[in-house]
Nucleic acid binder design. Sequence first.
DNA 1: CCTTTTTGTTAGCTTACACTAACCTTTGGG
DNA 2: CCCAAAGGTTAGTGTAAGCTAACAAAAAGG
Lengths: 120, 120
Amino acid sequence: MALYASGEDYLEAILVLQRKMGAVRSVDLSRHMNFSKPSISNAVGLLKKGGFLEVDGNGSLLLTDLGREVAEQIYERHQFFTRQLIAAGVDEKLAEEDACKIEHAISEESFRKWKAELEG
Amino acid sequence: MALYASGEDYLEAILVLQRKMGAVRSVDLSRHMNFSKPSISNAVGLLKKGGFLEVDGNGSLLLTDLGREVAEQIYERHQFFTRQLIAAGVDEKLAEEDACKIEHAISEESFRKWKAELEG
DNA sequence: CCTTTTTGTTAGCTTACACTAACCTTTGGG
DNA sequence: CCCAAAGGTTAGTGTAAGCTAACAAAAAGG
């Protein structure tokens, strides 16, 4: 079960929301990501099928170990690129936006090495 | 006429091939990018319609001023990210691959500032 | 000069990923 | 207790961007 950019985004958003508000339901994700309920429903179904998350009796989305690992990796990239861009003088909003796209484009190997080089 | 990541890639590839071999036809692009002839044909049609390139009597693809400008912008990003990753110890092949994806993900403003910060 | 190869296009398929419209549940206040 | 709101799903749509199969036209060479 392959994971695409969009799936990574969902996992990252779940992680962020979990940290911010504890339990996370589909509707929270829908509001946070500005995606329609059906889009979320579909994505959650795929992520569940892929073993990245589970849904409990209350409708709360729970990351599996695998899902959490992916989410944390992506979130680390997000923070790194955001920091770098802000340090370069980019305003926070744009830095976040661009980081959000770059984070899916780079391989783990390149990210590790680049981060070590720039923030070592 | 909006330009997407794929369109940027085609323009960049045309620029690179022009520099390497002079005239560039669709079939050269097809071989270089490992895309089927119909995919190229379709993309070239869209880029033509968008005013990014023209096709002369020999089937050579000619970038318009607009097309060249975009191509050069993207190529500059490509080189920047490739350099950065190689400097961080990433091997050339992976650096190229990742640069090729990152180059479409970053905004012009962020790129300019980041490049100035890191290489300025 | 005719045949084979090269080049390009047309038509139609697939997948990822968003959307709306419409429909079920469940929940919760008056 | 019932009706409305909230949460979630189903079904069907659209677009970007790749693909194959099949064909047309042009070039090349025995």
